Simulated assay, not measured.
Amino acid sequence: MITIALKVTLAMVTLAVILNVIRLIKGPDAPDRILALDSLYINAIALIVLFSMLIHSRLYIQSALLIAVMGFVGTIALAKHLKRGSVIE
């Protein structure tokens, strides 16, 4: 039963990733693209964790944590770049 739920959830999150990529490409301005990129890395983390649960392995959890940290830093850097024009002061 849990495997069916995991597969359905994987399909839904994959659809969310596809929609995020469309918004990332089509986005009318830079803040929309940054938000799409932010939600894209969150969905990537969800995909990795769900896949790890599906195959009963803890190997991928560290990569999910790494993506979370890098995504957070990247979002902050892009937002700061849009606000001030430079990342490092």
Rank of each mutant, 00 (worst) to 15 (best):
R23I: 00
L37P: 00
Y41R: 01
L24H: 04
L40G: 03
V17R: 01
V17F: 07
I34K: 05
A11P: 01
L37W: 01
R33G: 03
A30F: 10
L24I: 07
A30E: 13
Y41N: 05
A16P: 02
P28G: 08
I34F: 06
L47V: 10
L24Q: 01
I25H: 04
K26V: 09
V13C: 04
L37V: 03
A46C: 13
I34G: 00
R33E: 02
A44C: 14
L15R: 02
L47C: 10
V13M: 09
T14H: 06
A16M: 12
L40H: 07
I34H: 03
Y41T: 14
I18Y: 06
G27W: 10
N20K: 01
I42G: 03
I25W: 14
P31H: 05
N20L: 10
K26I: 06
A46P: 02
K26L: 08
V17I: 15
N43Q: 09
L24D: 03
R33H: 05
N20P: 00
D32A: 09
G27R: 08
M12D: 00
I42L: 15
A44T: 15
A44S: 15
D29F: 01
I42K: 12
I34M: 05
L47T: 07
V21M: 14
R23K: 13
A30R: 11
R33V: 11
V21T: 13
L40P: 00
L35K: 05
L24S: 04
A30P: 00
I45R: 03
T14M: 14
A46N: 03
L19R: 04
D29M: 06
L35S: 12
N20R: 04
D29H: 10
D32E: 13
I18F: 15
G27L: 09
I22M: 12
L24K: 02
L24F: 15
M12R: 00
L37G: 08
V21G: 04
A36S: 14
L15Q: 04
L35H: 06
Y41C: 00
